[in-house]
Amino acid sequence: MIRLQNVYKEYNGKPALSDVNLHIGLGEFAFLTGPSGAGKSTLMRLLYREETPDRGVVTIGGINITRLSRGQVPLLRRRLGIVFQDFKLLSNQTVFDNVAYVLRALGVDELDVRRRVASALAIVSLEDKVSAFPETLSGGEQQRVGIARAIVNGPPVLLADEPTGNLDPQSSLEIVQLLERISERGTTVLISTHDVPIVNALRRRVITLKNGQVMGDVDSGVYEYEAAVR
């Protein structure tokens, strides 16, 4: 589903990713770990086309996304669910409106919007918060809104860059378990994280980056660079 071939990306002459080869299959669930500055966010940004690689090829679902025109980028992003560390919710809109925004911008009719938002909010167990505003919610709840928004359009791929970075351990575990449940429905999920206990608790595929290179890739692994983490 996601494939990187000989990907190289540098900032100001300093490589952030060098010669990365990676394949994540359909419906797979994987952690992307590594110390700060390893290139995790850079890799994520390449996947949702916030950046393009200097060399190499990135494909998602067989499509070479490095070759997308500007007009095609929104089409790609609609096929991806993206979850952010800082949630990126619209503070002046309710939970419902936040989740509904993209559907409405696509001209989906209001009945359909309601149906799909309700089902996304049910998956993240926030049915009772539809008319709340983001700042009245806890961090964990806000991140669940972010996840509902990411999945509302039924994307085949879900990308989460440090989704638990701003959360307490308990909420963090809940969020990652929620993402795991979503992957069980057939969605390919890639989570970048620093969170050692969570990676160790789930025993899923762990891809380890260091200095922009893939240093490890094990199927049911643990966090390998504990010493380097805060």
């Binding site: 500007r70 929104p74 089409l75 992003r77 609609r78 993206i82 990126k88 993209v102």
Partner: peptide, 16 residues
């Protein structure tokens, strides 16, 4: 600004 960034990241088209 923030809203525009969010919309752009969630695949809302530039014309919208």
């Amino acid at each position: 600004q923030r809203e525009i960034e969010i919309l752009s990241l969630t695949g809302v088209s530039p014309w919208y």
